[in-house]
């Protein structure tokens, strides 16, 4: 039972992070390798707003989320916008470079000491009993809930709202979409904003659970196999991929060797790439476009 809870929490973490990869990739065919840094930036944002709005934790959280959205849009406007038309490698490299820049900047601003945003907010990470013999931490529960809500909202947004449909259109056929009068740059900026928002949220929650320091970025990379296994352009795929990776990892830790937990996701990824490179739900023809 505890294992199931652990899988749920870990899968939620991966899913919340990887939906950022999917959103950006789906719309603009660019893989953002700065996602870990943007995630950490979200977390530091929360830490900053928490100390700014001390005593009003909800305001702080809302402000941090808004900040994340804004940062995402800014990243597009200031950098990625210029990379349109460049090769995939160049675009991916631009995100890597952005990541390096952000990481350095964050160390400059916040130092290397461990921070605890949750305490800054004045909340504690209570432990809640689930069923007879399992427990989940407050933040863990929040993570599961946040992931559920995020994915629900994103599905609804993409299926039902006008902007969501435009976003899908831009992802499927940018040329046609542009000819139909859809402002691609707005769509791309929106995608970056939403991706950074969800990533930032993930960062905030992870930091609340575990404290915040500059090694957090690596976690962004760990969610990467999840997004790929599911199919880089499918939200449902990201969800499923996260579940598969998280399950494999948790079971590996419990039943085999914890030392393998770092490598196993990549083994799954390799196996997936060999058998079904486009992932569980990804579209097949995408392969040739990258």
């Amino acid at each position: 039972m505890q294992l199931a809870v652990n899988i749920a929490v870990l899968a939620s973490i991966y899913a919340l992070i990887s939906c950022g990869y999917v959103l950006i990739y789906r719309v603009s065919r660019v893989l953002s390798l700065a996602h870990g840094e943007l995630m950490m930036l979200g977390a530091y944002g929360l830490y900053a707003t928490a100390s700014l709005f001390s005593g009003q934790p909800l305001v702080a959280v809302a402000a941090a989320l808004a900040l994340s959205l804004l940062v995402g849009v800014l990243v597009y406007v200031a950098l990625m916008w210029r990379m349109t038309g460049e090769s995939v490698l160049a675009a991916v490299l631009a995100t890597i470079a952005l990541g390096i820049l952000l990481r350095g900047a964050m160390i400059l601003m916040f130092g290397t000491q461990t921070r605890h945003p949750l305490e800054e907010l004045g909340w504690t990470n209570a432990s809640i009993e689930v069923g007879d013999d399992a427990r989940i931490s407050g933040v863990g529960l929040a993570l599961v809930l946040a992931t559920t809500v995020c994915y629900g909202l994103l599905f609804a947004f993409l299926r039902m709202t006008r902007w969501g449909i435009r976003m899908r259109a831009a992802g499927q056929n940018p040329l046609l979409a542009a000819q139909r009068g859809i402002g691609l740059h707005v769509i791309y900026a929106l995608a970056w904003g939403l991706a950074t928002l969800t990533g930032g949220l993930a960062g905030m929650l992870i930091a609340s659970d575990a404290g915040l320091e500059s090694t957090m970025v690596v976690i962004g990379l760990k969610a990467f196999p999840a997004a790929l296994v599911g199919g880089l352009d499918s939200l449902a795929g990201a969800l499923l991929g996260s579940l598969v990776i998280a399950t494999a990892e948790v079971l590996m830790v419990y039943y085999v060797d914890p030392l393998l937990s770092d490598v196993v996701p990549f083994f799954i990824l390799l196996a997936m790439l060999v058998v079904r490179p486009w992932g569980f739900f990804g579209s097949r023809e995408e392969l040739d476009r990258v």
Binding site: S137, I219, V253, Y254, P258
Partner: peptide
């Protein structure tokens, strides 16, 4: 004995095994 990889988003899976 439980070793956790340096960057780990969630220590619970590792802790679970120790606890059990």
């Amino acid at each position: 004995t439980q070793y956790t990889p340096p960057p780990t988003p969630d220590y619970t899976p590792f802790a679970t095994k120790i606890k059990d």
